[in-house]
Design a protein around this nucleic acid. Structure first.
Lengths: 300, 300
DNA sequence: TGGATTGCATTAAATTATTAAATACCATGA
DNA sequence: TCATGGTATTTAATAATTTAATGCAATCCA
């Protein structure tokens, strides 16, 4: 029960590795040194030394501690299979909402989500608490959480807000220094867009990912924690709702591809006016798609 | 240990009140009905009925449950003194940062904060997780949290962004319907500003609160979850840094009061151009104050 | 017979308790 | 005297526990 001792286990194995690089009889460094070496506190180092001493790998008596024998495979301590769960939790959570078309108002069960995503409940709670700051989820009156949808009015405002952020980003992109990674990125995106355009008949559903990549690239020139976080959620919401509206998907996506290309052209030409105009046009399309997807979803 | 039974206690007392309104012998309603009446689940209702039965207030046998006697004061169950902690946690936390001039990079101890603010540790953790979405706090590599500061570049961007949001808000305020609470609020704020202006010699440090109230009022016309949350943090950060710079505080605050009054005038006159110009002027002052406060703080 | 109600079991969420790890402080010895 | 080790205290992570909610089958009475 209680806290995991992964830290200790990892440090222990690392110390074992350290021992292996020295011959028997070698004097071990000070606890503080080992602590820095392994990146853990002295408390953990001492626990490790204790075990090393018990197993007879070292002799330990106060400051006197020297290597007795080379460690063998059997001395190693087992690690719990690395749960990289928290890493991509956001990605996976948003993806889940998208993929299963989770409707607004759905109660979110901490226990169930934690099971499915294989993370601890408290981690999921923290995660939801974070999302609630964006109004994406909210606490329910009698406890628990729910997914919040948004009304048409809100969708309009969100679109407008997105417009403001993205026009700013486009303007900054146009003025990015020549060695900024954005140029490389834009060149790649241009190719990807043209490829998809060529195979639009079959691969039109691939556009969603490309759209996300495109907007992320544009916004990457804005170095601002606040805006970056918001952009993540905004792009999620747009995607989320795009998914709902399957009507004319191919035609719509082809049109969007061309709008993207126009923006890329203008940015590469370093033409602010043309770039912001193109962006404005594209975002207007986006907005109406979002609104119509809301309508369709409400009817269904 | 474990979960609080406040819900049960409150429901129980409410049921007692209900019993008091009926004479002995009255048949009690169904569990479901009582559940709706008290706003808790049937599980809790049954626990309450159990106790009522034990104390001889009712006779309970399956569906047969009737009042035996009127409840007396002594039947009541004690409530834990209402911890409204979570309610104002944000306010109090931000206030603490402000008041004690907590510098960037300060490690935040969950345990200590939870003690000081008298909330449970897990609540504080959720709260910090929320703030981390705004980049205001962050996890430290070896666990725990820290307060993140921001660089001068970031302050500039934040100011610019604030400008965008607030100009939008001002423009919307000018077009607010006549029955919108903003008008009442603005009238009150005008009086408060003039009062403070009259007593500026002694009360100039009171401006900080007024400033917050003013900007909050302006932004209250924008009905958008995202922007609203954002504004909260922006206003916090501006306050936070205002506090650092004590130079010329009186003069600066008097100037700001007049700028505020100019904005109020223009909004009340429903003059968009004048209002946005006034706002732009005020926010320019704000920005330079923010930047100079950063400089002073860095030097100190 | 069927709709409402209860009894029971399952599941979830909130909160405490417990353990691992970090840190602070004192003691000691080269 | 300063680096190092010993010990105590404190903190953060997480499991365990309790309250509360919910779902389903059994049951009662019209």
């Amino acid at each position: 029960m209680a806290r995991r001792d992964t830290r200790y286990r990892e440090a222990y194995n690392r110390l074992l590795d350290f021992c292996a690089t020295h011959p028997a009889g070698t004097e071990m460094p000070a606890e503080t040194t080992l602590s820095e070496l392994t990146g853990v506190s002295r408390t953990v180092v001492r626990r490790c030394l204790s075990r090393l001493s018990e197993l007879g790998v070292i002799a330990w008596n106060g400051r006197e501690k020297h290597l007795l024998r080379s460690p063998v495979q059997d001395d190693r301590i087992a690690l719990p299979d690395s749960a990289d769960g928290r890493e991509h939790l956001e990605q996976r959570f948003l993806d889940w909402i998208l993929r299963f078309d989770v409707p607004a108002g759905t109660p979110l069960s901490i226990a169930e989500l934690a099971r499915n995503f294989e993370v601890a409940q408290h981690e999921l709670k923290e995660f939801l608490a974070g999302l609630s700051r964006f109004g994406l989820v909210a606490r329910r009156p009698k406890g628990g959480w729910m997914l919040r949808g948004f009304t048409k009015d809100f969708a309009v405002e969100l679109s407008d807000f997105r417009l403001v952020l993205e026009l700013d980003a486009v303007a900054k992109a146009v003025e990015a220094p020549v060695d900024h990674p954005i140029w490389q990125r834009l060149a790649e995106l241009r190719v990807a867009h043209m490829d998809l355009s060529a195979n639009i008949e079959t691969d039109f559903h691939e556009f969603s990912k490309l759209d996300e990549a495109f907007h992320e690239a544009i916004n990457s020139v804005v170095r601002n924690r606040f805006i970056a976080e918001f952009q993540k959620v905004i792009s999620l919401i747009f995607h989320y709702h795009y998914m709902w509206d399957k009507t004319h998907e191919k035609v719509r996506n082809l049109a969007a591809i061309n709008e993207h290309l126009a923006i890329i052209d203008a940015i590469e030409a370093r033409d602010v006016q043309r770039a912001t105009d193109a962006a404005r046009r594209h975002l207007r399309t986006s907005k109406s798609t979002l609104l119509s997807s809301l309508r369709h979803h409400d009817l269904g």
